[in-house]
């Protein structure tokens, strides 16, 4: 009974993750993007914990805890601290395709992810059927967020979202990586996010804008 409820919960969590990613596709405020990323990671952490409960792989609880620590708290906090207010306060972000266009493309990407990943699933594998397609869709949408924005901060968030999708795929198919690799991965992401934040700051100081879509050539 509890097992079946947990599986249902996983389905709903998958739907919410997808929803959250779509919201990130449409949001225009930079601070909003970082907050949404925190919620996204929270959903990922809960999913990992539930998968851990369903499969009895208890080290997934640790993955959930690490996600909570690094991606819900540390990365959003440090991004907000590192990136100066002048960048975050700017409210409008330029979209390459416009919001309705991005949403439609996002929907198509979800379809692509669904129809390809459903073929990869072993027939009896309920867990993978529930979440593999969601993970693939989240990764593709993250890639699209990176491509479709002309601002540095949303591009960072796109990268982080993509990474979340990959983690979700790893959790549902391979039940996570070995613990030591997991630690390395989380530290990598943290350091990567921090470095990107610093780069954005340098960009701002150098060019007085972070609209990287406007950059045409490299300067010395």
């Amino acid at each position: 009974m509890l097992y079946a409820t947990a599986l249902k919960l996983l389905g709903v969590l998958g739907a919410l993750l997808l929803l959250e990613t779509l919201f990130m596709l449409a949001v225009r405020q930079m601070r909003g993007i970082i907050r949404l990323y925190a919620i996204h990671s929270l959903l990922l952490a809960i999913s990992a914990a539930v998968v851990g409960y369903v499969t009895g792989m208890y080290h997934l609880y640790l993955v959930a805890g690490l996600t909570l620590l690094f991606k819900v708290l540390a990365i959003p906090y440090s991004l907000e601290r590192v990136i100066h207010d002048t960048i975050l306060e700017k409210r409008e972000i330029h979209f390459v395709f416009g919001v309705p266009g991005s949403l439609l493309i996002g929907g198509l990407l979800c379809l692509l992810a669904y129809f390809t990943s459903i073929r990869l699933v072993y027939p009896g594998d309920t867990l993978a059927r529930l979440l593999l397609s969601v993970g693939a869709a989240v990764a593709l949408l993250g890639l699209f967020i990176m491509v479709g924005r002309q601002e540095a901060v949303p591009q960072i968030s796109g990268l982080l979202i993509m990474e979340n999708g990959v983690i979700l795929i790893a959790v549902v198919t391979a039940f996570g990586l070995p613990l030591i690799a997991e630690f390395g991965l989380f530290l990598d992401v943290l350091v990567g996010a921090l470095l990107l934040g610093v780069l954005v700051m340098r960009l701002q100081r150098h060019n007085e804008t972070t609209a990287v879509g406007m950059l045409r050539r490299l300067k010395g």
């Binding site: 997808l18 779509l22 919201f23 919001v99 309705p100 949403l103 439609l104 996002g106 929907g107």
Partner: peptide, 9 residues
């Protein structure tokens, strides 16, 4: 448009 994409999904 967001609502549409959600319902389509």
């Amino acid at each position: 448009g967001m609502a549409f994409v959600i319902s389509l999904l």
